[in-house]
Computed example of a mutant assay.
Amino acid sequence: MPPPPPQYGGYGGYGADPLAGMPPLAEPVRRIAARVLDWLIVAIPLAIIGIPFHIYERVTRNDDWNNAVNSFNGGSQLIFQLITIVAYVGYDAVMVAQKGQTLGKKWLKLRVAMLNDGSTPPMNASLVRAFVLWLPALICCACLWPLLLLILILLDKPYKQGLHDKAAKTVVVTVPH
C-alpha cells in the first residue's frame, strides 16, 4: 500500500500549512457583512458627490437607451466613474495596507493577512487585491462579479479565498478578542 500523500500547504505545493499559528479563517457571513459595510462607507458619500455630476439623470429620464448612452453630460459621468473607481480601490488598498483591515473588517473583528506568513499585506498586494475585488464590479459586472467571488469563497479549499485573495496571496482571518 503506498504512503498517503503529503498534506497540502500554500501555493503550488506540499508542506507545512501556512496558517499554522494564525487565527482561524473568517466565516463567509462575517466577510459578507464586512463587505456590505465597506460598500456603504464609500457609496453614501459617493451618492452625495454624484449629484453635481448628474449621475441620476439617466435613471430619471424616459429616453431610450441610445439617448442615455449618448448623453454623458460633457464627460461628467465618465469623470464620476473614475472617481468611484479611485474611491473604492483606494479605500480598500490603503486601509488593508495600513492595518490589514477596512472599517467593516475592523468592526466585525476580521483582518486580511498574507497567506505565507500572516503579516499585513504590503501596498502592492493590497492594490492587487483591491483592483481584482472592485474593478470588474465597477466597470461591467456589478451583480455577477460579487456573486462569483462569493461562490469561490464558499467553495475554495482549504483557504476560503476569492479571486482577489488568490491574486494577492492573502486570506481573511478572525482577530482574536
Score class of each variant (00 low, 15 high):
M1V: 10
T84C: 08
L163N: 04
D165P: 07
A33C: 01
R31A: 09
V175F: 00
G74W: 08
A167M: 03
L144V: 15
L82G: 15
L46I: 06
N67M: 05
G9T: 12
P2E: 13
T120P: 07
R31L: 12
R61F: 05
P121R: 02
R35T: 14
G21A: 14
I48G: 12
D38I: 09
G162E: 02
G9S: 12
A130F: 03
G12R: 11
G12F: 14
Q7W: 06
F80E: 09
I85C: 05
Y11Q: 12
P6G: 10
Q101N: 03
N124Y: 02
M123R: 00
I139M: 11
R30D: 15
N67Q: 15
T120Y: 06
R35N: 07
H164P: 04
V86P: 07
Q81G: 13
V128M: 10
P45A: 05
G75Y: 10
I32F: 15
F53A: 13
Q101W: 06
G10Y: 09
D92T: 10
A130I: 07
I44E: 05
N116E: 15
A97G: 04
L163H: 03
A68W: 13
Q7S: 12
P3M: 04
P146C: 05
M114D: 06
A33S: 07
A43Y: 05
L40T: 03
Y88G: 04
K157E: 05
I41W: 05
A137W: 04
Y56L: 14
R61E: 15
S71Y: 14
C140F: 13
Y56S: 14
W107S: 00
W107Y: 10
I79Y: 12
L19P: 00
Q7K: 03
E57W: 13
S76G: 10
P122T: 06
R31E: 04
L138M: 05
G118H: 04
V29S: 04
W145R: 08
L25W: 06
L103Q: 01
G21T: 13
T102S: 11
I153P: 03
L46N: 08
Q98F: 08
D63N: 07
V89T: 03
L149Q: 15
D117W: 08
A16E: 15
P23R: 01
I48E: 08
S119N: 07
Y11L: 14
D64W: 11
C143T: 11
P24D: 01
G13I: 10
A168T: 03
C141K: 02
